[in-house]
């Protein structure tokens, strides 16, 4: 692993932990860096809500199948196990015999993933979520990558809880609800853009993200502007389009 790249990532992540901190943007950045640094093909971050159910907050590429796979319609799977036990859960060959979560495994294979690792996001004794790493080829993830992955999961935990030292359930209620709503806005925006531009969801997400970066705006704000009609899909790709109905 490239040490300098790794160091740069931690500096970059620490840099985003400002007053004006955007949880959902931060977690997307973290998911992206996992893919770049850890030799994995996709990463997803899930956080537990006040009902102790895992909710998907960020993925590395927003491919529709990955999003579906990470939603908690399965009451089984490595993410849930890592969350419940507080320990890493790995499966190096989802196509192999004896996978403990058959429904999750077959859905993962359909989505193009052959191996998975789920790392707990731990704060002291409490587990607040999981970082899931997917690979398209079977095989173990190196010990080095797992260590770095855990360090990134720890950074995510700190990011989530850094803002104020108020009571945990309130942090969960305020922060997580806000993040979940941002997540819903991104789903709404992604598909509105996909429909307008005739691209798939991952493509539409890349357009949203690229625009947010180029214009130094938060991903959630751009998604919101698109959904409320302040920014058109054509604006995102730099093509002037017809003005939208101002009554929105």
């Amino acid at each position: 692993m490239d040490d300098e790249r790794l160091m740069a990532t931690f500096v970059e992540l620490a840099d985003t932990l400002t007053d004006d901190f955007d949880l959902i943007e931060f977690l997307h950045l973290l998911a992206d860096r996992c893919v770049e640094l850890l030799d994995v093909d996709a990463a997803a971050l899930l956080l537990a809500d006040q009902h102790a159910e895992l909710q998907l907050i960020a993925t590395s590429n927003e491919q529709a199948r990955l999003v579906e796979l990470c939603q908690s319609q399965y009451d089984e799977g490595p993410g849930l196990e890592a969350f419940r036990t507080g320990a890493r859960v790995s499966n190096a060959d989802l196509a192999g015999a004896g996978v403990p979560w058959p429904r999750f495994a077959s859905a993962a294979l359909v989505a193009g993933f052959a191996a998975v690792d789920a790392l707990p996001m731990r704060l002291r004794t409490e587990v607040i979520g999981t970082l899931k790493l997917f690979r398209s080829r079977a095989g173990e993830l190196s010990a080095d990558a797992l260590r770095t992955g855990q360090a990134l999961a720890d950074v995510a935990t700190i990011g989530l809880l850094q803002q104020r030292s108020i009571r945990y359930h309130e942090i969960v209620a305020e922060q997580l609800r806000r993040a979940l709503h941002s997540r819903v806005v991104i789903e709404q925006a992604k598909c509105l853009v996909a429909e307008r531009l005739g691209v798939d969801q991952a493509g539409a997400f890349a357009v949203l993200r690229g625009y947010a970066r180029d214009h130094h705006r938060k991903l959630g704000d751009v998604a919101h502007a698109v959904v409320t009609g302040q920014t058109s899909a054509n604006d995102l790709i730099g093509t002037p389009g017809p003005a939208r109905n101002p009554g929105w």
């Binding site: 909710q55 579906e68 939603q71 997540r183 598909c191």
Partner: peptide
């Protein structure tokens, strides 16, 4: 909740 992201995706579409 994002039980079903598809509901929100469909809304956008």
């Amino acid at each position: 909740p994002l039980r079903s992201a598809q509901v929100h995706q469909a809304t956008g579409m």
